[in-house]
Design a protein around this nucleic acid. Sequence first.
DNA 1: GCGACTTTGTGCATTTGTTCACAAGAGCGT
DNA 2: ACGCTCTTGTGAACAAATGCACAAAGTCGC
Lengths: 226, 226
Amino acid sequence: MSVDQAAKRDIPDATVARLPGYLRALGQLTAQDVLSVSSEELAYSAGVSSAKLRKDLSHLGSYGVRGVGYDVAHLTYQISRALGLTHDWPVIIVGMGNLGRALASYGGFATKGFKVVALLDRDPQLVGDRLDDLTIQPMDELADVVTPGEACIGVVATPAASAQDVADLLVTAGVSSILNFAATAIQVPEGVHMRKVDLSTELQILAFHEQQRSGAVSDELLEEIG
Amino acid sequence: MSVDQAAKRDIPDATVARLPGYLRALGQLTAQDVLSVSSEELAYSAGVSSAKLRKDLSHLGSYGVRGVGYDVAHLTYQISRALGLTHDWPVIIVGMGNLGRALASYGGFATKGFKVVALLDRDPQLVGDRLDDLTIQPMDELADVVTPGEACIGVVATPAASAQDVADLLVTAGVSSILNFAATAIQVPEGVHMRKVDLSTELQILAFHEQQRSGAVSDELLEEIG
DNA sequence: GCGACTTTGTGCATTTGTTCACAAGAGCGT
DNA sequence: ACGCTCTTGTGAACAAATGCACAAAGTCGC
Ligand SMILES: NC(=O)c1ccc[n+]([C@@H]2O[C@H](COP(=O)([O-])OP(=O)(O)OC[C@H]3O[C@@H](n4cnc5c(N)ncnc54)[C@H](O)[C@@H]3O)[C@@H](O)[C@H]2O)c1
Ligand SMILES: NC(=O)c1ccc[n+]([C@@H]2O[C@H](COP(=O)([O-])OP(=O)(O)OC[C@H]3O[C@@H](n4cnc5c(N)ncnc54)[C@H](O)[C@@H]3O)[C@@H](O)[C@H]2O)c1
């Protein structure tokens, strides 16, 4: 149990949020048969500063070689381990509309440490349809697809109006991590992790910055005028 | 020009990122014909603490009434104004695959201050197809759909391999805000705003916390054993 | 008008995250 | 073996964000 394990316990949230980005950049280097990389180069590929990258990695342990850089394969392994990606996590997607189907047919899961194990929808018209090698199941089979004791991630891709209900069902079934794509905030009990992905939020943040820019221009004009 | 405008200039990033959530919660209250709301209630709907909400709103100005709360309609207006949503922003989507089509047919844009004005793809098979009331255009019409001088938001929904090229084309055409859905980091010149939405990043962060949880359990066991 | 009550807005302490700058270490050529 | 060069890992300074606690400012009943 050692320092090494203890270190894992307090990786700052901001660091955890960036690790997937480093992992992705490392994947691209692996694909190009690059064996070793400096903090400067890796930071550039991941879109952060090198100081930040080094501080982040220092929370996982000391896996670089001074004067040389990081071994791509070894660092990939260490970050994967820190994130808990040494085995695949089962993922359940609820809501097989436009978005749900796009997510289900998205291949990027398997290579990233996840495996979609079930697709659910409440619409009887959709139940039974096949997508790749999974069949859409009705909501009352939710309890059967969640293995008690085994952690599992639930993805909510239903309309906003159903999102809270679906999240409640997932929690009741034993899911302890939820990723919400619906355009609404959902409440989860203590101990359940929830994250959200939201298109309109992101667009609105971009709009804010666009407006700042144009606002700054008008202000300059105003100042010139006096 | 005044304090009011000056206040707008330095809204902290963390606050800006939460404003869309407040706006959404307010929208739900409006739909329920609620006229006034306290910081406690609104904070709960948006999933934040009331202290945080009040501090956030205080950056926009002083729009609450002590002892009463906030007027839903007025606060909606003030947040919209702060975010720059008083007029619609044009949005261009590039990459009409599974995800691109789901995004294009997603109705949530219009009500949130955005309007999809063009859909582009490089695949000649897709060009000419209609989606709702837009026709998919080839990439070389990009310059025509970006009005010079008018700000516009570009959405990248192509595979990772093309994302950087597409972003470069968008920037060249004059787009100064980009939302990237591709599973890769893209570099943009100074002055261009870029945000990303990424499924696997979010799943990996959830995986980290799941693993922390199970790690904590084993540690307790180890400690008991001695 | 006035006092009781409610809820905002904010100063301050604390926590969290970022940046800087450099000593400590590793490889390499001689 | 030694000094030169390179890049890591990290302490310390700085900046941003959060949470606390309460005075200020409003409503409402009387
Ligand atoms: N489509 C997009 O690009 C997009 C983008 C951003 C956000 N979103 C959000 O994602 C969600 C889904 O979008 P969509 O376009 O796929 O919607 P959709 O209407 O096409 O699909 C929703 C699906 O959920 C199912 N569903 C509804 N209630 C359910 C319940 N209680 N239990 C199980 N299944 C239920 C419906 O049968 C339907 O198949 C929405 O909340 C939307 O705001 C979508
Ligand atoms: N589908 C999902 O649920 C999902 C989820 C998360 C992330 N993503 C990411 O979103 C991106 C798109 O996913 P998808 O499933 O829609 O892929 P897709 O392969 O179905 O569609 C990609 C589209 O982009 C077009 N395209 C390719 N190169 C182009 C170029 N240079 N210029 C213009 N158009 C080009 C293709 O013609 C195709 O129509 C991928 O990077 C994927 O990793 C997808």
